[in-house]
Design a protein around this nucleic acid. Structure first.
Lengths: 128, 128
DNA sequence: GTAATACATTACCGAAGGGTAATATATTTG
DNA sequence: CAAATATATTACCCTTCGGTAATGTATTAC
């Protein structure tokens, strides 16, 4: 409480947990998913644990949910994430650019097979 | 332990604390600083608390330290920070670009006086 | 209506985290 | 040498956090 806590503060706390980051990644890669679909990606975690994480993400605004039948469909809210972190990212922007270029060089050399470095898979599907 | 923990994992935990983020900002804006200089920026915190944070940052590799007399001079290691977060940032890059443009537009309209949006203050001084 | 499904909520636990105070160590000063 | 300065380390406290289990609630299926 002795440090200015901007709105980005909550985002950093949200991103501190690897499970939550992976949930965001899944929503980004596969589009909107139900709680069950998300939970199935975490065999070592109980479903209610995922639900709790989702509530945290929802409270932070980085995901939103709509009911469909008896299931809740969660989707990423990328603008909230981006707008909240943009000021911080901008501070170190000069460093990102160099690091990102290096990443692309590696990818282009075919030494990285990680799908995250390619641009074809952040697709949107089934908006309704 | 049920989730892949990449090397970026430690970085996210480091960034989760606002005091540590501010320390990084100070080092980025003012160049290398001693523990005392950094601690003076946190009136509500005891010096050993800052020291502990600095050891954490050092363990993560995002800062390095060299003795000068009886004081330790800490400096930012921007490449470690950038390289560690670049993969994650790349995933959501399309969203950052939009948010960062919006930030610049606001700055250009003179509605933001925050020095963080200007590019003149990330200076390097006194490398030795 | 009853049972089953899909989530959310609550209570609870252990571990980790941030903070202080006290102590230790290295360096300079007198 | 002793005293002072600058930082690191340790022990300890309290809070937060991630996790589970159990219970609650809404919706669908029978």
């Amino acid at each position: 409480m002795q440090v200015m806590s901007s709105n980005s503060d909550g985002l950093f706390r949200i991103l501190a947990d690897p499970t939550r980051r992976l949930i965001l990644d899944l929503l980004a890669e596969r589009g909107p998913l139900s709680v069950g679909q998300l939970a199935s990606e975490f065999p070592d975690l109980v479903a209610s644990g995922i639900s709790k994480h989702l509530m945290g993400l929802r409270a932070g605004g980085v995901v939103s949910a709509t009911r469909r039948g008896r299931q809740q469909i969660y989707r990423l809210e990328p603008d909230v994430l981006a707008a909240g972190l943009a000021p911080w990212i901008a501070k170190y922007e000069q460093y990102w650019s160099a690091a990102l270029e290096r990443l692309r060089d590696l990818a282009q050399e075919g030494r990285v097979k990680d799908e995250l470095t390619s641009r074809k898979n952040v697709r949107r599907k089934r908006l309704k």
